[in-house]
């Protein structure tokens, strides 16, 4: 086991894409964690005096505000840096929900087979009968109207509930292959309970694909959250979500282009990071000879 892990680690270190991805992701993580230290201004406090011009226009990047200000005179740099936490938290929570659902359903469907499998996969088909984004928009818009729960929670719940299907399919596929293997057979002979087989024997062997999909899922969820925020269906104001920053700043593309460039590039870099990392992990766990 040790050598396999060592080999995997070596493969990872040799994969340029994975390294770049890991670097970018850790940068964003550092930004999120160190946010209070990195910015002098409160991301939620408007500054009507030095943050806006006479007429109320956002201020250009200057010494006090390195990336300028937004429409309310808040520091863009500060909001950018605090926005990292929002993206990561929402992405992570959404992925957590999706993984939980997906893995459970995949495990059960793959192992049980027969009617249960068919039924569950039909359920997957039904959720997939709808474009992910449209379903997310519909659900987010409707959840927004109701009084239940915190605004940000509604967002990642929406994304999680809509996005578990790929995970379920992949896990089920893997379980189908593993099911017939010797070690599962022997576990059954010994009389292990289904739950034990599922969680102690099958689950550890599916961790590879789960990790890959979870990482790629982070990228997808962060992207989806930014789209929802752009449509004003994301975390409620004044949360400094990057997508929301784009929504608020988009009309200023001529007078204050930094309002669009900064959050746009931030989203881009974060998503690239997770995508590269995810693909790197995929190469690590399931290497195809490319070299």
């Amino acid at each position: 086991m040790a050598t396999a892990q060592f080999r995997a680690w070596r493969r990872f270190c040799r994969n340029r894409g994975a390294l770049v991805g890991a670097f970018l992701v850790s940068m964003v993580l550092a930004m999120a964690v160190l946010a209070p230290l990195l910015s002098a201004h409160d991301p939620l406090s408007p500054d009507f005096d030095s943050g806006l011009t006479e007429l109320g226009a956002p201020v250009e990047p200057n010494f006090e505000y390195p990336l300028g200000t937004d429409r309310l005179g808040r520091s863009v740099w500060s909001r950018l840096v605090h926005g990292a936490e929002v993206s990561l938290v929402v992405g992570f929570s959404a992925v957590l929900i999706a993984v939980t659902f997906g893995v459970l359903i995949g495990l059960v469907a793959g192992y049980a087979g027969g009617m249960v499998d068919t039924l569950l996969m039909r359920l997957v088909d039904m959720v997939l009968a709808f474009p992910f984004l449209l379903l997310a928009i519909l659900l987010a818009a409707l959840l927004r109207e109701s009084a239940v729960g915190d605004g940000t929670a509604k967002v990642f719940i929406t994304l999680g509930v809509v996005g578990w299907t790929t995970m379920a399919r992949v896990v089920r596929g893997k379980v189908l292959t593993l099911r017939e293997m010797d070690f599962i057979e022997s576990a059954r002979c010994v009389g292990a309970s289904t739950a034990r087989i599922l969680f102690r024997h099958l689950l550890p062997n599916v961790l590879g694909p789960i990790a890959v999909l979870a990482t790629l899922g982070m990228a997808q969820m962060i992207l989806a959250e930014s789209v929802l925020s752009y449509l004003s269906l994301g975390p409620p104001p004044p949360t400094p979500s990057w997508g929301r920053m784009l929504y608020e700043g988009q009309t200023y593309y001529r007078t204050a282009p930094w309002l669009i460039a900064a959050p746009g590039v931030a989203i881009l870099i974060t998503v690239i990071g997770f995508n590269l990392l995810g693909e790197g992990l995929r190469d690590v766990f399931d290497p195809k000879d490319h070299h």
């Binding site: 939620l44 406090s45 408007p46 429409r71 309310l72 104001p237 004044p238 009309t251």
Partner: peptide, 15 residues
């Protein structure tokens, strides 16, 4: 309700 200026005013009021 969803409307650019409204949302700005709300955030200023909040503070």
């Amino acid at each position: 309700f969803q409307d650019g200026p409204n949302e700005q005013i709300a955030q200023s009021m909040q503070v």
